[in-house]
Design a protein around this nucleic acid. Sequence first.
DNA 1: CTGAAAGCGCTAACAC
DNA 2: GTGTTAGCGCTTTCAG
Lengths: 359, 359
Amino acid sequence: MHHRSARPTIKEVASAAGVSTQTVSRVINERPDVSPETRKRVQDIIDELGYQPSALARSLIRQRSYTLGVVTSGLRFIGPSRTLGGITSTADELGYSLLLKEQPRFDANDVTPTFQKLLARHVDGIIWAVPEVGENRSWVDHLPLDLEVPVVYLTMHPSKTVSVVSIDNCKGARLAVAHLLEQGYRHIGHISGPLDWWEARERLAGWKDTLGEAGYKVRDTHWVEGNWGSASGAQAIRTLHDQYPEMDAVFVGNDQMALSVLQFACRTGLRVPEDLGIVGFDNIPEAAFFWPPLTTVNQDQYAVGKMAVEQIIRIIETAWQGEEPTKPETTLLAPALVIRQSSLLPRELGEKEVSLKGD
Amino acid sequence: MHHRSARPTIKEVASAAGVSTQTVSRVINERPDVSPETRKRVQDIIDELGYQPSALARSLIRQRSYTLGVVTSGLRFIGPSRTLGGITSTADELGYSLLLKEQPRFDANDVTPTFQKLLARHVDGIIWAVPEVGENRSWVDHLPLDLEVPVVYLTMHPSKTVSVVSIDNCKGARLAVAHLLEQGYRHIGHISGPLDWWEARERLAGWKDTLGEAGYKVRDTHWVEGNWGSASGAQAIRTLHDQYPEMDAVFVGNDQMALSVLQFACRTGLRVPEDLGIVGFDNIPEAAFFWPPLTTVNQDQYAVGKMAVEQIIRIIETAWQGEEPTKPETTLLAPALVIRQSSLLPRELGEKEVSLKGD
DNA sequence: CTGAAAGCGCTAACAC
DNA sequence: GTGTTAGCGCTTTCAG
């Protein structure tokens, strides 16, 4: 049975209005060359029938779909979802639809089918919102298929050859460590994320560099690698506490692991922030309600999504106007430190520590 | 400049292979009526050129897009994102693409444009993944436009007229309260979510009913309404503690608010679980690392998304085969209690409490 | 087994 | 101003 659609076609509108389909087309596209009477008559029929032009047919003929492909990964985590939120609202605002694909694994390397599927649906551009993990960016500079559409990559190292939007994780780490130093902490450890993640490496580098520049020696015993999960944080802080007994503060790679550090302190009777200053990363909504409230680095992932959409649409529109293609550009968004109790040393204690020098 | 696509068309493949487009079509659709030699020749050209049929053109002619529309809201929260994760992976598995729209507000009531846009892109079905809040379901039974595609609604009250997939929130609350009773708690308060949310009302009802059935009187002073956020939880527990001093346990509408209750206990010197048993709802990843670890109700939101996709595809395929349309059905997924320390009373204390009877 | 013709719903390029 | 013709990339008859 050929399930006849209730949705009218342009042809039906045309015959109902007693004009050609072309005239209807002119009306729905708001072309000037239609007489006011005809326009009104057609518009009335359109309203009456609830006619809506087929975006599919339009895409086919215009060679333009006003659709963006979005490839994401890890929707079970809050970060990627926030970015996606920025993408959805901005795309909607600018009149684009979204075709969504989720990669089951962060480190999937066979990306060709994903691109193929998106291209088969004629997307005008692609936002690659999978974070850089391991070798999962090795293909960007020599894709087997030549992409006929622009791509913007999220959360990866700056690049000369492709467009990128990322948070400046290194900067965020620097803010965190500088703050701890300023508070008077002098033995600042670090629990990193998994080092195959670009973001984890950046945060580690920010910690290391800031300490180095402040004249402190950084030893391998001063940091431990976690895997973002709270459980790994629990393990990491135990190790770190053992191998770096002088440690008086710790910069933790994300808030989930920082939560475990708080719990560790609570269990072992360490006072936070007096005995141990703690700074996390991400500013998850719960962080303000940990005990004590957690100082952390806020990253605006919504903005990452927003900028990605704005940028890719700029590229698309430029190309469509036949102008010179815009050169790839990397946008690094600066994160901000959110200072709460977990790192706020009572002033006198801070001052005292300042007088004791050294590593 | 007419940006000529690098992607070959069926016509180019056909002429390169020296056959008609029709034959190419037969090859890509794996029709039997092509000679092995022809098939091979065509297939070779296809591989060589990297030809990929246009899903757009196919959708147009087949009147079927293998695309699902997904309408979500609140991607900044972890719940909707998890559901979306279930949707993406299941759709991918079953060979469907997803067109994603996010409603800026939960209680948006003007849904017609959203449907229109999706229909204009010829989606085969729609998953309405916005939770029921306020009057935002008032239109389901009398949509102004007649939908030519099936819709599955998520997270709303069971219905006879439309297909629904929801978590059984009432059941979840019952599990929580029954567990607290079993532990020996006798004065169980509740912090609800905002009552314009269907989920919040269900959880409230589950709490109330379970207590009632166990023979306890439920007073209005025994519960307070929150708004899901941790800050509201902090306010709520203070109020509740004042107006219900005998309270020895509290069932909290979600984990974020429960976190504030833990913090309140910590600050006021109440011991958890000895002086105050706590059970949350949602099982956010952090809950296991709160101090003490939080007993909570786990809801499998990923499964909600998965079932929604499976169900809508079943409906689509059935309709397409011209069979009787399947009747609307409501699927209620049972949540599960995850017992952790925050509600686990030392046995002797539990027993003692059991002997004291009453409200 | 293979090809020619028609058409999905729409619009660009011409006529009139 | 408005209609006609052609065609976007594909598939479905229907011949041969």
